[in-house]
Amino acid sequence: MKYLASLNQSLGRLLAEDSRVVVFGEDILDPYGGAFKVTRGLQEQHPDRVLTTPISEAALVALANGMALRGLRPVVEIMFGDFLSLCMDQILNHATKFRAMYNGQVTVPITVRTPMGGGRGYGPTHSQSIEKLFLGVPYLDVISPSVFGDAGELLERAVRRDCPVLFIEHKLLYPAELISGNSDGMTITSQSDSAAFPVFRVQNYETGNPDVTLITYGGMGRFVPEILRHLAKEELRVLACVPTRISPLPCDILTEAACESGRVVVLEEGTLTNGWGAEIAAQLQESAWGELKRPVRRIAAPDSIVPTARQLEDAFLPSASLVEAEILEMIE
């Protein structure tokens, strides 16, 4: 099953099973069915609940907030994740605050879904991974499916969550095949975080301790099979730990994975400074200090803009070969 089909089918199921679910976003009228086609076919099936909207990102999230407070379960699509900046106030000062400011008397069960990421040559304002700006916002879950597990099922769980959820998809993953069972030399298991969201463990070895722990999520997870396969040829045992809920972090699970090897690499597509890896490194230095053999290594894009020219973009965004080279260096 492909990532995109999985998401599309889950939206269909949600609409069919729960009359409170409403889906809206720009350009989702069928037959066009949305910029990335995630909602295709749904507007035809449920014309009163799948709505195409004007280009008003801030108001879209506000609509969702107003709906959620009055008992609906809105799923709003923001066409490109880069445009989340336009929604920041409604996420930060409305969606995630109502329940707390009103002392727990209301809930705001909204899901804002959006595709992030580069690799398509769309340029600096259409290729970013700015979910990092929302990490750590109190009372906000940030969830990002990768190629492991069932992306659609994750979306269903996100929509059923009673708190606001930012659901981060990745453009390059839409045509990708989801990986479920063990394949290609990888052993895949999963653990549950404190809200029962899966954290996938992908190993290129059967038993014993890994040499290095690679922590990543979302779009970058597509490099895991390749990295594990190449490093297996070097007899390097790699444990890839791939959470699906990336904020709040599954600290206990990450600590355990870090201690197994004592060498940690965190991989993200967003820019380096103050990113996802920075928080993981801070938490691990508190929880795993004695077990770490060296400082946590963060791999991310440089602190600049995503260039448009193909070869520049390829060099800018982290790649599998970059990660492999960093890991080989770290094993000295």
């Binding site: 506000a62 609509l63 907030n65 107003g66 407070l69 008992g71 409305h94």
Partner: peptide, 16 residues
């Protein structure tokens, strides 16, 4: 902010 949220609430009320 409340103005836009109110519009969302109105949608919900009409829907219900």
């Amino acid at each position: 902010g409340a103005v836009a949220c109110a519009v969302g609430s109105a949608f919900a009320e009409k829907y219900k």
